[in-house]
Structures are given as structure tokens and as C-alpha cells.
């Protein structure tokens, strides 16, 4: 369904002051990926990285000693140095899919998110675009995801942004 793909997309674009080859390596070599993947303050231990379609990147994310949060990518497409498609999910120590491990968002975090990363280079700088959307989601989850993005883009008259602000303040 073409419409689903466009409706439900989540897009982030970022320009890096580095050639595309280098950005590609940062995404595809385990010791490099472990240097930056994940929020600040966490360390990544790479359990497995198989750079081939169907291969898995299985990692433990650690924010404090003794507390591993497992996650995985399963690669779908690898076209060096410009395109990487993978499915991201939380996981257990054996690499099986799990729900988000933190209670706050457990119910709202999609089980699996399909991510498409594209890299293009202009004058030594690399533009990275990441598109993400939940897959294997329930119809309701998909609709909701789509409507969240629609409202983020158009703010349906700006009201939704305000609503989210209000809610954030309401604490």
C-alpha cells in the first residue's frame, strides 16, 4: 500500500561535515557503530554484527553498570555507500524481539520499526536522511503513527503542538 508508506513516515535529516565513505563506515563497522549509536552517556557492547541482508546487529546498551538493555537491527538492504535498510527492535540477550523494557513507554513503543537510511554527498559533506515507520503494527497503531506525523507536519492548524505542550506542562 503506497499510501501507508507515505502517510506513516517519520523523517529526520542531518548534514555531517564528513565524506560519505566515512559516514558509511561509521554505520557499518561494529567498533565504529559502538562509538556513537545510542544517547550520550550509554555504552554499547556489540554482541553480533552481520553486515548482510538478513544479518543482525545485536547490542547491549548500558546506562549504568549491570543494567543491559538489549536491542537489535535486522538488515534488509545494504547498498554501499548510500543506502541501508533495517528493522530495529528491543531484544533479549539471545536476540529475540521484546517490547520496550521501560515501563513508561512499554505500551506505546512499536514492536518493530523499519528504518531507511540514505546518504548523499555534496562538496565533502554528507546528508543523511532517516525514514522510520512501525511495521507489523496493528491497524490502530499504524493509523495513530500516521496521524501523529500528519499533525506534526501540519499541526492541524497548530492546535496539536499546543496540545502536546499543554500535556507536557500538565506533567
Amino acid at each position: 500500500m503506497a499510501s501507508t508508506a507515505t502517510e506513516a513516515e517519520f523523517v529526520i535529516t542531518r548534514v555531517f561535515d564528513a565524506p560519505r565513505e566515512l559516514v558509511w563506515k561509521a554505520w557499518t563497522e561494529p567498533e565504529r557503530l559502538a562509538q556513537w549509536w545510542g544517547p550520550k552517556g550509554c555504552t554499547i557492547r556489540v554482541a553480533k554484527l552481520e553486515m548482510r541482508p538478513g544479518g543482525i546487529f545485536h547490542y547491549a546498551m548500558q546506562f549504568q553498570p549491570g543494567h543491559d538493555m538489549w536491542g537489535r537491527f535486522v538488515y534488509r538492504e545494504i547498498v554501499a555507500p548510500e543506502r541501508l535498510v533495517f528493522v530495529n527492535s528491543f531484544s533479549d540477550a539471545d536476540g529475540g524481539i521484546t517490547r520496550a523494557p521501560f515501563s513508561q513507554l512499554k505500551q506505546m513503543w512499536p514492536l518493530e520499526v523499519l528504518n531507511e537510511v540514505t546518504l548523499s554527498e555534496q562538496k565533502g559533506k554528507t546528508t543523511l536522511t532517516l525514514r522510520g515507520r512501525p511495521i507489523n503494527a496493528t491497524e490502530e497503531e499504524r493509523k495513530m503513527f500516521a496521524s501523529m506525523h500528519e499533525s506534526m507536519r501540519q499541526g492541524f492548524g497548530g492546535t496539536f503542538d499546543k496540545l502536546v505542550d499543554c500535556l507536557a506542562k500538565a506533567g
Partner: peptide
């Protein structure tokens, strides 16, 4: 609302680190 926010923030933080790393 917070899942979309968290997901975006997760990537933005990772990209900040990627920027530093590069």
C-alpha cells in the same frame, strides 16, 4: 505523543555523537 518524541530524541542524540565521532 511521547513515543514519537522519544524516538526523534534518540536519533538526534545519536547523531550528535556521530557528528563528534566524525
Amino acid at each position: 505523543a511521547s513515543w514519537v518524541e522519544h524516538y526523534r530524541r534518540f536519533w538526534e542524540h545519536s547523531f550528535d555523537r556521530l557528528d563528534d565521532y566524525l
